[in-house]
Amino acid sequence: MRAFSSDRFVLPLPAGHPFPMAKYRLLHAAVAATLPGIRIHEAPPASDGELALAHEPAWITAVTEGTTSAAQQREIGFPWSEAMVDRARRSVGATIAAARAALFDGDGVAANLAGGTHHAYAHKGSGYCVFNDVAVAARLMQAEWHRARRGGLRVLVVDLDVHQGNGSAAIFADDPTVFTLSLHGAKNFPLRKEASDLDVELPDGCADAEYLAALDAALEETWRRLGTPPGLAFYLAGADPHENDRLGRLQLSAEGLAERDRRVFAALAARRIPVAVTMAGGYGRDIAVTVEIQRRTLEHALGAQRAWAGESPA
């Protein structure tokens, strides 16, 4: 299985900043040490033209040239720097590369070791998200699929970060070619939610059994509404529903999250839907716990990819 990483491009943050930037380097190291079936490649940067498939040119220019306002930088949560721009582009590029591998190269499953920046809107960033990697990659895959004269490509976004994918919902609003599913904390960020195609709001303290039942029902409703399976899926496998997470407010165990991943990959495999996986959020009180949750997600992704290719998943 192929995975794409941008962890070499470190975003410089001031001392005491709450974003756990080190988790990407630690995840890369954990995958390299324990999952030899995953080949890690450096992420390419997304171009202006690729970003413009989901973002307004004025926003791309402001980010690139460093003319974002103080208020815009506060909404993102990161100070501007050239390194921030490069890393944001490569985070998008990694999801593009994973989607191409899954869809066009026949891999079936591929991953971004970061990504899932679902709070970014077409015209602004928000919540540690500068550009929306899944939105850009979905639109680009649709364009490339069309250029190959294969007709239209329908896309499914399965967003299981604990925070609602408001930016993705807004970008894909009224777009019948992209179905957005979001399971998230009802009282968590963002305060003002957008309308996904299917939103499932979960109460504070939601634990494994309640969460997995809600996931099963949501997937069944998704298949019912879609009718025929879409041609490509993006899975935002946030670690932040975990009980250890500083920003999660839910109470899922590590095993509950592993079961979540198994059910998502099984549902996609049963319908032969290629999937690009992104890590999305994870803000554990112990960063090692977050890294292990995401490493296990990639372990399940590797098993799904081997099954797709007809190999033994073990």
Results as ranks from 00 to 15, higher is better:
S196N: 14
A94E: 00
G238Q: 05
G256Y: 04
E220M: 05
L247P: 12
A70E: 15
G310L: 02
I76P: 03
D261F: 12
D174L: 04
W80L: 08
Y235K: 07
R295E: 02
P241G: 09
H300F: 05
F104Q: 04
I293T: 08
G231N: 01
G77F: 12
A288S: 13
E299K: 12
A138F: 00
T228V: 07
D208H: 00
L252R: 08
R74T: 15
Q142E: 12
R272M: 07
A173L: 09
L13E: 02
W80N: 03
F104N: 00
A94Y: 00
F9G: 06
N132V: 04
S182V: 10
G165T: 06
D216R: 15
R192I: 05
G165S: 10
N188E: 11
G282C: 12
P14K: 09
F19Y: 11
P20D: 01
A32W: 09
E255M: 08
M84D: 02
S5F: 02
R295K: 04
S47D: 06
P20A: 01
V85R: 10
S91L: 07
Y128E: 03
W59D: 07
S196W: 12
S47Q: 04
T117Q: 06
R74E: 15
T61R: 15
A3M: 06
K187D: 15
V10L: 11
R192S: 05
A97Y: 02
A186D: 15
S91W: 01
W223S: 06
Q73F: 03
E50S: 09
E56L: 13
L140R: 03
A30N: 02
T68D: 12
A309N: 10
N132T: 04
N244W: 00
A254G: 14
G152M: 03
E42M: 06
L140N: 01
T95I: 01
F189W: 09
L27Q: 04
E292M: 10
G152L: 05
R246C: 07
G116L: 05
